[in-house]
Design a protein around this nucleic acid. Structure first.
Lengths: 205, 205
DNA sequence: GTCTATATTTGGATAGAC
DNA sequence: GTCTATCCAAATATAGAC
């Protein structure tokens, strides 16, 4: 409780290191981010960093841990209920996805994920498990329920989930790319909604 | 003509540098690939590299140039003809995409693109233009023709193209990720075909 | 916990002999 | 064109004073 405020200096520094590192790693990647730059932006000397972290990699792992901590899923009973709403469920799901896309912190973590995806085997596995499989699971359960209730045409629920998710991912990637260059995303920002519209027309009975 | 064979040593070395660099860059990215490693794998000293390229960046640019040189498009008359075939056109397009996904050289270039996408503004622009827009253009023209001929339901052709392309991209990314870890892609390898099946059912009248 | 100073490694690049 | 030798800069990390 009082740990948060107790010796603010220590905790503050460690948190500041993580915040700065998070920004730098997600902008330049692991290799191109030097501890020098981190220390400099935090406002301390490099040697002082090592009072808080064993080495550069430990800082990175600490930052990377947050990539997949975004709670995003709904519990099972929630799904069953939501799925019965058909299109509204898809809208809700897509809106959550859109929210993450435009959330500053999630945006950074998504970029970091993309940058390090082919450099880090563990990230690849987490991407597959927690990013892909987790979403597929939720979605295919929902689509299964919709099929049972004849809201949508009959098909492999996993396949439908895959189709729905892949486009969400692609939209997110494109938006993140544009925002990285401070480009306008006005055209793309409605893409999530359009996707739901198109997709619902594609599957409804 | 005889340039290919004339002084094979010189040309051979330059080509070998590019080949080795291509592999290393697409595995570790620009920053994490050292000229030392390149020279070592080529079998020459670092200093000898500089007889062929001005510096490391020039090597990279030379390699990166090949990312978007994959001929993939068909000419316009071809499209009009193919589009009339409806589903067969989609199958053909998806098969070309699949071929690129599993082609060793294209696979490397795709990985390099993904690794450097957020590190290199020019690559981002090329990705948007030559990778995304080019495909969207071809596809939306085809879908437009299909709509005119009442082969598919009426909708925004660009939107339909976007939906079709995004899933292809996602499949490619997943397969490339799995293959990087020497994982099995048997489940995913039929995903392209399944995608076409599902998508055609979604849009046909 | 932070600083100065320093050790050590790695990486990009050049000069000049052969 | 390639080699040896060398330089210089940048980066990770540690030791010890304050």
């Amino acid at each position: 409780m009082s740990e948060n405020m107790a010796n603010k200096k220590t905790i503050g520094t460690k948190q500041k290191i993580l915040k700065v590192s998070s920004t730098l790693f997600s902008e330049y990647g692991y290799k191109a981010t030097s501890v020098r730059k981190i220390a400099s932006e935090v406002g301390i000397r490099e040697s002082a960093l090592y009072n808080h972290f064993k080495n550069k990699e430990e800082i990175f792992l600490c930052v990377a841990k947050e990539i997949f901590t975004t709670p995003f899923s709904q519990n099972d009973s929630d799904i069953k209920e939501s799925a019965l709403k058909g299109k509204a469920f898809l809208q809700k799901f897509a809106m959550q996805y859109k929210l993450l896309t435009f959330d500053k912190n999630n945006e950074n973590m998504f970029r970091l994920l993309m940058i390090e995806l082919f450099q880090n085997k563990e990230l690849r596995e987490q991407f597959m498990n927690e990013f892909h499989n987790e979403n597929i699971k939720v979605l295919s359960e929902a689509f299964f329920i919709m099929m049972q209730n004849s809201l949508i045409r009959s098909a492999d629920p996993m396949m439908v989930a895959y189709e729905f998710l892949s486009t969400l991912f692609y939209i997110r990637l494109q938006i993140t790319l544009l925002r990285f260059d401070s480009g306008s995303t006005t055209n793309l920002s409605t893409q999530f909604e359009k996707h739901v519209e198109f997709f619902w027309e594609s599957i409804r009975v």
